[in-house]
Design a protein around this nucleic acid. Structure first.
Lengths: 128, 128
DNA sequence: TGATTATGCCTACAAATGTAGTCATTAAGG
DNA sequence: CCTTAATGACTACATTTGTAGGCATAATCA
């Protein structure tokens, strides 16, 4: 998993990562264009966030003419895995059931979700 | 859920909340004593965190002589529910299965966990 | 070909966070 | 009684985060 374990990505930075996880590489203005629907951010703000993410090692750059194209160095999957595990360890002593129980509250789990989880559990039992 | 929805609790603050979720009300020095095993924090640091948590509305105080006793105003459960849902929405579009899948990786789910989840799902199916 | 735009680099600045220090007061111990 | 320890109130200061602004340069449009 490399050094990705210790990188801290802030909320706003995560919004930028999301764009690049969906599509990459992209230049700053293209990232801005994607974000425009969701966020009311100045292009400079986005450039700052991009620069910070590069500095942190979360993004790589490649030159294209006189600009940079940005790509994720850590996958959404590995980031999500880390964040999930941190939450689970921090709040539930590493146990999954209470976590899912919380999701289930307030109609958080649909029938489809439940079916999907059952399939997942069945698969886990076969493997393990 | 009251106003607890908008309270942001930082990492260090959460360590303090954890102590008071386990036992409360407690005075500052008692909180410090509990934390001493895990954290190498000056008592002043803990007092600052307690004050910030009171300011944020996460803790209440009651006077006992010339000192304060602190108690959580938001339960661990409701905090955990909010944090879980935020993570789930943010990273998995609100769907539980991918989240559990991440927990399952790296032997994250024990046989007991799986059994517990199955029981939980069965229960949900009955209710829903 | 001069004004406008887009880019990268550097700088800014307030709020939040991590981590304490100072001070005045008071309770407690010798 | 005087010293010491504990407490709350206020202050401090570096780092991270949110959210840009300014400047020099290159590309582009009129």
């Amino acid at each position: 998993m490399g050094q990705s374990g210790k990188i801290r990505i802030s909320q706003s930075e995560l919004d930028v990562m999301d764009v690049l996880w969906t599509q990459s590489p992209l230049g700053a203005s293209e990232v801005a264009q994607e974000l425009a629907t969701r966020k009311d951010w100045n292009i400079r703000t986005i450039k700052t966030l991009l620069a910070r993410l590069v500095e942190k090692g979360a993004l790589s750059t490649q030159s294209e003419g006189r600009r940079y194209l940005y790509s994720p160095l850590i996958s959404k999957d590995s980031y999500a895995a880390g964040a999930t595990r941190r939450l689970s360890d921090r709040l539930f002593g590493g146990r999954a059931a209470p976590l899912v129980m919380h999701l289930a509250k307030d109609d958080g789990l649909s029938h489809d979700d439940i079916a999907e989880l059952e399939a997942l559990l069945a698969e886990l039992k076969n493997k393990g």
